[in-house]
């Protein structure tokens, strides 16, 4: 009946496979977003990520220019190159966003995070915790006879490593700020 010879049921792939040409390697990118410091701006950014199904590994935000009413949001995200491009383009579309920088692409950049770890214990473990803290250049910011609160700054993997070591030594609680990042050089 048709002029075509349609191969019925010939579809091998789901049409949801939207990006067959694009690499599906997951990449980790650190993106700095300069936004107007106004109510709701963080909700816009977070809503974009949840609404479109993007990942957030870490997100930090604080005002960086009081007179210009600008805040800097640093987002660490993972996705295929295609998704990363979309994330940047979609961020750029938000009216309150001034600037989007992919530090991973524009890099090299330095990344730092601050963490505080409460380690509870006594005896050998307590001594060992203190010794390791020294090696990692973590400071003791609070102590009792049975606990320490360490403060450590560094790249996220350094903090991960320190936390891993503290775990058997009585790590009770950890608070992390998320990543702040800047491009190197001028």
């Amino acid at each position: 009946m048709s002029a075509l010879h349609i191969k019925k049921g010939a579809t091998r792939h789901s049409a949801y496979n939207l990006r067959p040409n694009f690499s599906d390697v997951q990449e980790r990118h650190t993106i700095a977003v300069l936004v107007e410091n106004e109510p709701g701006v963080l909700a816009r950014v977070i809503g974009l990520f949840s609404g479109r199904g993007y990942n957030i590994e870490s997100l930090t935000v604080a005002e960086v220019d009081h007179t210009g009413h600008l805040s800097r949001i640093t987002i660490v995200t993972t996705g295929t190159p295609q998704v990363i491009e979309q994330i940047k383009a979609q961020l750029g579309r938000i009216v309150s966003v001034h600037d989007v920088h992919d530090l991973t692409v524009e890099g090299p950049s330095v990344e730092r995070e601050l963490a505080m770890l409460k380690v509870v214990g006594d005896g050998e473990k307590r001594v060992e915790a203190l010794r390791l803290a020294d090696i990692f250049r973590a400071n003791v910011v609070d102590s009792t006879l049975t606990s320490f609160v360490f403060e450590i700054t560094g790249a996220p993997d350094k903090i991960d490593a320190f936390a891993d070591l503290m775990r058997p030594l009585g790590l009770a609680e950890i608070a992390r700020t998320g990543v702040a990042a800047l491009l190197r050089g001028d």
Partner: peptide
């Protein structure tokens, strides 16, 4: 792979 008419619609 367009369908053009009724006759082509079975199990498509």
């Amino acid at each position: 792979e367009m369908l053009l008419g009724e006759a082509e619609t079975q199990g498509v």
